[in-house]
Amino acid sequence: MIEIVMFVGLGAAMGTLGGLFGIGGGLVAIPTLGVLFGLDQQLAQGTALLMVLPNVLLALWRYNQRNRISLRNALMLIIPSFCLAWLTSLWAVRLDAHNMRLGFVVFLVILTLFNLIQMYWRKGDFSPELRHPQWLWLLGVGSGVTGGLFGVGGGVIATPILTGIFGASQVAAQGLALALATPSTAITLVTYAVHGHVDWQLGIPLAIGGLASISWGVRLAHSLPERLLRSLFCGFLVICAVVLALKV
Rank of each mutant, 00 (worst) to 15 (best):
125 D>C: 05
142 G>S: 03
140 G>S: 02
174 Q>P: 06
114 F>V: 09
101 R>A: 09
99 N>G: 14
142 G>W: 10
85 A>K: 02
149 L>G: 02
191 T>V: 14
157 I>P: 00
89 S>Y: 12
155 G>D: 02
103 G>R: 03
190 V>M: 08
113 L>P: 00
154 G>L: 09
191 T>K: 11
148 G>C: 05
186 A>H: 02
109 V>Y: 07
97 A>T: 15
164 G>A: 12
160 P>T: 00
158 A>I: 10
92 A>Q: 06
164 G>S: 14
159 T>I: 10
111 L>G: 00
169 S>R: 06
116 L>N: 07
129 E>G: 06
145 V>Y: 05
85 A>C: 06
86 W>P: 02
145 V>S: 02
157 I>K: 08
113 L>M: 13
128 P>E: 12
117 I>K: 14
140 G>R: 05
139 L>A: 08
150 F>H: 00
174 Q>E: 10
132 H>Y: 11
97 A>L: 04
118 Q>A: 11
98 H>W: 11
194 V>Y: 12
113 L>F: 15
99 N>H: 15
169 S>V: 04
106 V>E: 02
118 Q>T: 12
122 R>G: 01
117 I>F: 14
140 G>V: 11
87 L>R: 01
167 G>W: 08
128 P>A: 11
174 Q>R: 14
115 N>D: 03
100 M>L: 10
143 S>H: 02
83 C>W: 11
114 F>A: 07
100 M>E: 08
99 N>Q: 14
146 T>Q: 10
115 N>T: 13
177 A>F: 06
110 I>P: 06
170 Q>W: 12
161 I>Q: 01
148 G>Y: 05
98 H>C: 06
181 A>R: 09
157 I>W: 12
96 D>P: 02
186 A>C: 10
179 A>K: 03
93 V>Q: 04
95 L>A: 13
153 G>D: 07
154 G>K: 00
109 V>A: 06
92 A>G: 04
98 H>K: 13
142 G>H: 02
191 T>W: 06
86 W>N: 07
186 A>Y: 08
166 F>T: 08
132 H>A: 13
97 A>C: 09
187 I>Y: 13
166 F>A: 01
180 L>H: 14
194 V>N: 01
85 A>R: 01
129 E>T: 13
88 T>G: 00
157 I>D: 07
101 R>Q: 15
176 L>S: 08
103 G>D: 07
107 F>M: 04
138 L>F: 09
164 G>V: 08
169 S>D: 13
175 G>A: 11
134 Q>A: 15
171 V>Q: 15
123 K>Y: 10
124 G>Y: 10
127 S>K: 07
110 I>Q: 04
136 L>Y: 00
92 A>N: 07
86 W>E: 10
179 A>R: 07
85 A>H: 02
172 A>T: 14
86 W>C: 07
151 G>Y: 05
125 D>K: 13
113 L>Y: 11
167 G>N: 08
189 L>H: 04
180 L>M: 15
105 V>S: 01
83 C>K: 03
99 N>V: 15
156 V>P: 05
158 A>N: 09
162 L>F: 01
143 S>G: 15
95 L>R: 10
129 E>L: 14
135 W>A: 13
191 T>D: 02
171 V>S: 15
103 G>A: 12
140 G>E: 09
131 R>K: 13
124 G>F: 01
193 A>L: 08
119 M>Y: 07
159 T>V: 15
131 R>G: 05
112 T>F: 13
149 L>P: 04
84 L>A: 12
168 A>S: 08
134 Q>L: 10
183 P>G: 05
190 V>Y: 08
154 G>D: 06
174 Q>T: 14
